[in-house]
């Protein structure tokens, strides 16, 4: 039973990532694309979580954590880049 459920959910996550991809291609502004890319990153975490159940392995737990961190940092960097064009600013007030 769990086998079929995981397969179904894997297909659902794939569709979900594909829908986000439509927004990445279409998005009228840069911010739309950043939002969609961030959601793709978050969906990938769930995708790999289900792969862990299917393959009965714990080896991917680090992968999940690293993808979460990279998606977060990427979105923040993009947001700062859109706003000012400077990602790492040194001069503090």
């Amino acid at each position: 039973m769990l086998q079929t459920v995981t397969t179904i959910v894997l297909i659902m996550m794939s569709i979900s990532i594909f829908i986000c991809f439509i927004r990445v291609v279409k998005g009228p502004t840069m911010s739309d694309r950043v939002v969609a890319l961030d959601t793709i990153g978050i969906n990938l975490i769930g995708f790999i979580g289900i792969l862990m159940i299917i393959q009965k392995t714990v080896a991917y737990s680090e992968v999940i954590l690293v993808i979460a961190i990279i998606a977060f940092i990427g979105s923040i960097a993009f947001a700062k880049f859109i706003e000012g064009g400077v990602v790492l600013d040194r001069d503090r007030r």
Binding site: V5, M13, S16, I19, C20, I22, T39, I53
Partner: peptide, 20 residues
């Protein structure tokens, strides 16, 4: 576990539809 995973998949797909 199946119910939790199905719920998660449903939420993800609805979120993506919302984004579009």
């Amino acid at each position: 576990v199946s119910i939790l995973i199905l719920l998660g998949g449903a939420f993800s797909i609805l979120g993506s539809i919302g984004i579009v």
